[in-house]
Design a protein around this nucleic acid. Sequence first.
DNA 1: GCAAGCTGCTAACTATTGCAAGCGGCGATC
DNA 2: GATCGCCGCTTGCAATAGTTAGCAGCTTGC
Lengths: 134, 134
Amino acid sequence: MSKSKQQAVEDATGLTEEYDNEVGSFIREQRERANLSLRRLAERAGVSNPYLSQIERGIRNPSAEILKRLSRALEISAETLYTRAGLIEDGPAAPTVVDAIESDRSLTPRQKQVVLDLYRALVEAGAATDEPNE
Amino acid sequence: MSKSKQQAVEDATGLTEEYDNEVGSFIREQRERANLSLRRLAERAGVSNPYLSQIERGIRNPSAEILKRLSRALEISAETLYTRAGLIEDGPAAPTVVDAIESDRSLTPRQKQVVLDLYRALVEAGAATDEPNE
DNA sequence: GCAAGCTGCTAACTATTGCAAGCGGCGATC
DNA sequence: GATCGCCGCTTGCAATAGTTAGCAGCTTGC
């Protein structure tokens, strides 16, 4: 092959370990959003709690296996976490909230309706009064 | 999950689909399909060649970072490799509701919290009492 | 024959992951 | 106000990821 792929090598060796620090804070964010203590999430994911603590603070760089368990325990897709960790180039196409709720398995149709109603109500209110941007 | 059938050229490698959940044999197959020697792929991916050898034979379990570099060097998507490595579930285990809400653009962070709280509360309740399906 | 070039693999080593044990702090119950 | 339980964090230590150096085999050319 031609040497046109030097960029890839250079990129690969140069490396991307600079912005993987945000995985930790992202995980912590998701954990707190789920109202889980560090220990509870750790147990749920099958990871030791000190290690999770270090992951969240960016001290340790978790393997994909650990990330996978954490994504499961946090009920977010592994792709999202990998993207956040810089392990996947482009993020997964964000599904719409409505689609996601519709295809969810842990909710009854009635419950879906409730969540959807709330979601739509908030969107309506937000659109009328305030911009989503923080 | 049907794999691509671009096996028009058989290469007489005789490898075929022997791989199970192993990433290694899949990587080796892709490498040979690209007519790359082990050393060349290793260099291209920025990995040492003995290590790549061990990965291909399933002796070592590569981190996601290494998989990412290999996927680039092989010019296949990282998702494919991760799925092959069993690091991404293409199965139903990952509900995307949380992701969808998280990445939604029409909600403020506060509103997201509200919807997520409701969603999780319903899931919890549903799990505790009655499942919508199996 | 034999050196030069490749192929993939083994061995020994270092660096990092990931864990168990244990720390001090904070709120509740007695 | 001591004890219990949970919180997150620090500290060593075992396991393993990933390295460099070097092995044997197999061609090609001199």
